[in-house]
Design a protein around this nucleic acid. Structure first.
Length: 583
RNA sequence: GCCCCGUUAGCUCAGUCGGAUAGAGCGCUGGAUUCCUAAUCCAGAGGCCAUAGGUUCAAAUCCUGUACGGGGCACCA
């Protein structure tokens, strides 16, 4: 319906522009839905938009356009109002066509059938040195919901986790696991306070022992040597001596423990994510960027030489620098340190070049808002390598505060007493956690109310929406009528009550909502849409009865409920939340 | 000091490719169930859209300054 009006308006406006000989005028007709029924169903502001270009009074312009607008049994009346709005009044029956669309498209309703390009979303990518905690939760949900949203909008989507398996932290992880392993047999081995303290380290160490028994134990002599090193673990650098000791003593065993620890850690992370409804189809290892094959340079070296050949690299104080300050970054950045080690940044240059080489139309990174200062240098590197920086989008996720009984739960990185994602899921369920995380705009701080997430009442928006779905299912269970059978007979012109029209109009906006949310990376809009839909339904439910004597009216109402149920399902599906049949 | 994000009802927040009278939930006040799930609904009160300018026929929305809050400014990852 809306499209029909827009098409018709375009015809008239084109004609108007042609006859006014002002040359080409760029315009786009948008039809807004009117809140106030006095103003009709839809309105266009096109007359006011064009008034200047055509040097004509907007009201006169609107009059001309509306005069030419053909009326029929769908568009009943066209009016000019206010400063130059053109209002359209359509017949009540036209709203029902949307129900047929929904019934035809089912779970595809709202989805774009056209293919609109390939997207890479990289998200979570937390360091594999500890389990996911609540700080990772928001980004995890955001990424996975954005992925299904973009799929619905017609994109081919890859979801990628970037594994930081290359830096010093991996060595610290290995040492930590090894120490816990040694503690099984030697009481006087202490855990370095500079290692990772969590209980998960002990679990991995137990697994290590189960699979390898005594393989990595120390000789008496070596045990005497490690004790003084363990004595001195104060400054951050002191753990390095422990790392070198481990490398020296175990030889190949060092990298065996390292990959054992990494595999176990990733399994923990993967299973937490899956429990949370998040599943990446690609896992990219930082270490792969450093592999040299068949005499070819590693991807990192290739990245640096790319920058270098465009004259963006120089050497200073024994280090290799990227001239990012020439491209809108605050200062130049080190790619390779004076000790020969590559920086994390140089990995990231290579990683992003690799993303570009995989020919995506959009490359989306989901980062914590504390990383915003990092974007200019990555952008600069892509620009310096001749890549189109418009393809790279970064969504920054603000922090979420957990709140219990009105009190913020404080979490300090230092003490390491983070609440894990697992604990959160156990307390409020994965579904509720997903919904509450995605219920806010990404760049907005979020208060996650644990009590509310557990509450089973309309105060909890997730329950409110799910309850609408369950209520409809309940009606369908009660009614003695085959929902599939009678739909040829349904008379949609009976659905003309005010609330019925309101619901149908709202259902009709779902595809546009998906498109808009996908375009601006705003999955939270789906939550608000569904709350509105649920609210319209609950109100309707209290106002009308559905199981009634008048069977043709009943059938038409069933058809309406079926549409509501389908759209709630489709929306919750994108959020990765279930639509219960009963509650 | 420089940079990024935010500031909308008592609270938590939508709305920001400019549109007619700024919305929702909670909380507050008052109502609705012999009936399909009251896990619900209906009504009322509640606003200088942080602030000062600017652009426009039209600004919560765009531009500039200021205040307040969060974050970031490593040869860490």
């Amino acid at each position: 319906m809306q499209q029909k009006i827009i098409n018709q308006l375009t015809l008239i406006v084109d004609e108007l522009i042609k006859s006014s000989d002002v040359g080409d005028v760029n315009y786009k007709i948008r039809l807004q839905e009117n809140k106030d029924k006095e103003h009709g169903d839809y309105a266009s502001n096109i007359a006011m938009m064009l008034a200047k270009d055509l040097s004509e009074n907007p009201k006169n312009l609107a009059e001309q356009i509306s005069k030419d607008f053909p009326l029929d049994d769908e568009v009943l009346r066209v009016e000019v109002a206010g400063p130059g709005f053109i209002n359209f009044f359509v017949s009540e029956a036209t709203h029902a066509e949307i129900l047929k669309n929904i019934d035809a498209e089912k779970e595809k309703y709202g989805h774009n059938k056209k293919k609109v390009g390939k997207v890479l979303i990289e998200y979570v990518s937390s360091n594999p040195t500890g389990p996911l905690h609540v700080g990772h939760g928001r980004g995890a949900v955001f990424g996975s919901v954005l992925a299904s949203l973009l799929k619905a909008a017609g994109h081919k989507v890859d979801e990628e986790y970037y594994v930081n398996d290359y830096g010093r932290q991996m060595s610290i992880l290995s040492v930590s696991v090894w120490l816990r392993y040694l503690q099984n047999s030697s009481k006087n081995i202490s855990m370095s306070p500079l290692g990772y303290q969590g209980d998960y380290i002990k679990l991995i160490a137990q697994e290590l022992f189960k699979e390898n028994k005594d393989k990595y134990l120390l000789s008496d002599n070596d045990r005497d040597n490690i004790l003084p090193i363990l004595e001195l673990q104060e400054d951050e650098k002191d753990i390095d001596s422990l790392i070198s000791f481990m490398q020296k003593t175990l030889g190949e065993g060092f990298s065996e423990i390292r990959s054992f620890a990494l595999d176990n850690m990733l399994n923990i992370i993967k299973s937490d994510l899956i429990n949370f409804g998040v599943e990446h189809n690609l896992w990219f290892f930082e270490s792969s960027l450093y592999i040299e094959e068949k005499g070819k340079p590693s991807k990192v070296d290739k990245g640096i030489s790319d920058l270098s050949s465009n004259d963006f690299v120089y050497e200073k104080d024994g280090a290799i620098w990227f001239k990012s300050s020439k491209l809108k970054d605050d200062k130049d950045r080190v790619l390779q340190r004076s000790n020969g080690d590559h920086t994390y940044f140089s990995s990231d240059v290579a990683y992003h070049l690799d993303k570009y080489n995989r020919s995506y139309d959009r490359i989306i990174n989901i980062w914590g808002s504390d990383h915003h200062g990092y974007l200019p240098r990555v952008r600069a590197a892509m620009e310096a390598s001749g890549r189109d920086t418009n393809k790279l989008e970064v969504v920054f996720i603000q922090f979420a505060n957990l709140v219990r009984n009105g009190e913020k739960i404080s979490m300090s990185t230092r003490s390491g007493d983070f609440i894990t994602l697992n604990e959160l899921m156990n307390e409020v369920t994965a579904e509720a956690a997903r919904f509450f995380y995605i219920n806010r705009k990404a760049d907005q701080h979020l208060e996650f109310d644990l009590e509310l997430a557990k509450e089973q009442s309309k105060d909890n928006p997730l329950y409110y929406i799910q309850y609408a779905h369950a209520r409809i299912c309940s009606v369908f269970n009660k009614v003695e009528y085959d929902l599939e059978e009678g739909h040829e007979k349904v008379d949609l012109s009976l659905l003309i009550a005010e609330k019925e029209i309101e619901i149908q109009k709202h259902l009709a906006t779902f595809p546009a909502l998906i498109e808009k949310a996908a375009k601006s990376n705003d999955p939270h809009l789906i939550c608000y849409y569904l709350k509105d839909l649920a609210s319209l339904f609950h109100s309707y439910y209290n106002n009308e009865k559905f199981i009634i004597e008048d069977s043709s009216l009943m059938i038409s109402r069933m058809f309406l409920l079926k549409g509501v149920k389908q759209v709630i399902f489709n929306g919750l599906e994108i959020l990765g939340v279930s639509s219960p049949e009963a509650m």
